[in-house]
Design a protein around this nucleic acid. Structure first.
Lengths: 164, 164
DNA sequence: GCCCAACGGCTGACGTAACAACTATAGCCA
DNA sequence: TGGCTATAGTTGTTACGTCAGCCGTTGGGC
């Protein structure tokens, strides 16, 4: 029954374990600021976009969510005052999700801790050489599996998840 | 706004991207055999346990699920004939989840493809040196964040996720 | 200018997971 | 033995994400 000890299985297990453990740390810290991982991701994506805004569809493409998922997250976050919808002047079908000042402020409250966790539990665990090797290996795998074909939407451009 | 270009953010992004992309590949293959990722994990955990069985609680501890989550997955899988519940002779509160022959067969149908995907998209992308470096780095991070404190249940023993 | 396929976003139905409350059993101590 | 607390598993509730289907808008061909 030792198919389960194949080297690949072990490697994948390790990857999943690290992912899960880090996600848990992140989620715990987000929760301290009343944010879910998804909400943090949305906030991040919007904040790093021109004018702090993004069309609903584009937001979906840049996250792990479907378009209807985005509709619902944005609903909740709008209710909580973290962002607003704004009509698109050039296309009346589209609407933008825009981060409010409260949203930006919330993000600024969360980010330092987030970076600290990354530093403490991930980057900080590795000497520069190891880190480079890790990044190099991950990049190779990433380039192979190419998010394009896999990640929910067909969008291909940049990507590169910012965090949780 | 270039907090988002911090080296840590990039690294985490890469990790998440790889995880997501591989998960998607796995899920697609599982689906070909009418299995969800959770079901595959349950099947795997049971199949590598003595007598192909595990108490519900232990199963929960070895997966990412809560105990109630396990109850429900086992409900579904029992309905589909992949496993059965068996009373525990020594403790009438406990019950075992046991893989049926059909369950084992299904697992045997899925595993080769699963291993092939791991080989093709993960291991195969890296030369032995890179792979070692990756595993070493991941192991270091894993040892630091220790699943113990984070993963749903307080169980600490082995762990090491087998796959998706 | 009109039509029609494509697109953007929203909603209803469904599946699934977590949390909390509940039942039954177990083990302990007096 | 009686009773108390801890444990195993299930169930009700709630939240959230996807899929399919809907409506309004758009833009291109005729």
């Amino acid at each position: 029954m030792n198919v389960f000890d194949a080297p690949g299985i072990t490697a994948i297990g390790l990857l999943y374990e690290v992912h899960a453990a880090l996600s848990a740390r992140f989620a715990a810290q987000f929760e301290e600021h009343d944010l879910s991982p998804v909400e943090f991701e949305v906030l991040t994506r919007l904040a790093r976009s021109p004018n702090n805004q993004l069309r609903m569809t584009d937001l979906a493409a840049q996250t792990t969510l479907s378009t209807s998922g985005v509709t619902r997250v944005v609903d909740r976050m709008e209710r909580d005052g973290l962002l607003t919808r704004r009509a698109c002047p050039s296309d009346r079908r589209s609407s933008f999700a825009v981060v409010t000042d409260a949203g930006l402020q919330r993000l600024n409250e969360v980010l330092p801790g987030h970076l600290r966790i990354i530093e403490e539990w991930f980057i900080g665990q590795l000497d520069p050489k190891s880190l480079d090797a890790l990044l190099d290996a991950l990049r190779r795998v990433r380039d192979a599996v190419h998010p394009c074909a896999t990640a929910g939407s067909g969008r291909c451009g940049d990507a590169e998840e910012p965090a949780a």
